[in-house]
Design a protein around this nucleic acid. Structure first.
Lengths: 224, 224
DNA sequence: CCTGATTTGTCACACAACTGTCATGGAACC
DNA sequence: GGTTCCATGACAGTTGTGTGACAAATCAGG
């Protein structure tokens, strides 16, 4: 899943952006200052960065310059100021796009997509989740166990991706039903069945699962 | 010198843009229709394309889609309409940026620079893709299998190129339909048929493909 | 232009794979 | 020991895919 880092000091705007981005299918997280933004991006690099220009302490321009020293991530400025001088300065500093608040989330999302498309010129290393001897690669549409390809069905694959994206965290049947099947309501036993089938394929001893474990009364989780 | 192609039917606006761009140090030339734009860009490729959306005959959206089939040049839409729906549609069609008229030339110039900066990153047009015993050469327009030339049709060739450019990655029928045929909508079975025909030519045992494999529910991919 | 050959897209059918439901029995919890 | 929760096997309905036939469109050559 595509991760987006939002740097914006106004709490309400930041939260609204994060919510809207998650709605669009991104994994989004935010910080309030440029300093935090630099730290965060170095520790856990996002695929896109959204940054406000007016920030307390280090401002957006300086943030962009500093980040660009060692990171080629697409940067989009989200600013309230619709001023040619600011736009030019931000782009010169190394930003890739500049949108003016208030921004339509659909537009923002489309611009992010366009940027990633362009950035991905050439060959991007395929991203995959590694959990112990298990490897789930959404891009290749493959699951490998100790290097060998394990054939899984589409539903199983989606389920596994969802679990792999949240390694170590419990996901309730309802959450899985919602995210994998898109069902708001429905029989939760359905999840059980597919978890069972998945275990047959990815576990050494399906009766005593080591990776895809049950947490009674809570749900399932994937663990290393 | 950086060349820019401007496609805009309003003579005054087009000339004003051309003048301003030359002022900024670009070599700029323009045409009034999308059809001319396609022709011109194929005959003498510019480094950037500016295109209006509302054009007589073929509109800007269609222009972008058609050009994108075989040209990766950065495309900026310059439109009078400041409408989220248009913006999203243009970016989805393959545009890289969207600015609203009237536009400050300094901003436009900065956006073009930002685009080129990103565009050059890793855009090394590969002469041929090698996938196992298979060799796809976009430049020569040839497909070889174990050194022998395999005759494929134009559509098959495009399809194979698209798959070869993303070796190891799943491409959905919709993605293929979009990238190979330029269709936004349409019957996905069309892809199946062409994949089938391609298999007859490039696979040892077309019923058990080793390279051009199906990922049920996901799409197709080419694998080594 | 005209004509025949090739290529392209549509359709329908058959088959295989997958999905969701249910019932049963077992395990964990109190 | 009773209750809740979970695992699993079977099964019927659904969906997804491969393929051959065919007509429309396009191309090549006279």
């Amino acid at each position: 899943m595509t991760a987006v880092l939002v740097i914006e000091d106004d709490d309400r705007i930041r939260l609204a952006l994060l919510l809207a981005l998650e709605e669009e299918g991104y994994r989004a997280y935010g910080v309030a200052t440029a300093e935090e933004g630099l730290q965060r991006q170095r520790a856990d690099p996002a695929d896109n960065v959204l940054v406000d220009l007016m920030l307390p302490g280090m401002d957006g321009f300086e943030y962009i310059r500093q980040l660009r020293r060692d990171d080629d991530v697409p940067i989009v400025v989200v600013s309230a100021r619709d001023d040619t001088h600011d736009i030019v300065a931000a782009l010169e500093a190394g930003a890739d796009d500049y949108v003016v608040k208030p921004v339509a989330i659909k537009e923002l999302s489309a611009r992010l997509r366009a940027l990633r498309r362009r950035g991905r010129a050439g060959t991007t290393p395929v991203s995959s989740h590694v959990v112990g001897e298990l490897e789930v690669s959404p891009e290749e549409g493959e699951v490998r166990r100790a290097g060998r390809i394990v054939p899984v069905t589409r539903t199983e694959f989606r389920l596994l991706c969802e679990l792999a994206e949240h390694v170590g965290r419990v996901l309730s049947r309802r959450q899985l039903l919602q995210r994998v099947w898109g069902y708001d309501t429905g029989d939760e036993r359905l999840v059980d069945v597919h978890v069972g089938r998945l275990r047959q394929k990815i576990e050494d001893d399906p009766a005593n699962p080591r990776h895809l474990v049950t947490l009674r009364g809570l749900g399932y989780k994937l663990q290393r």
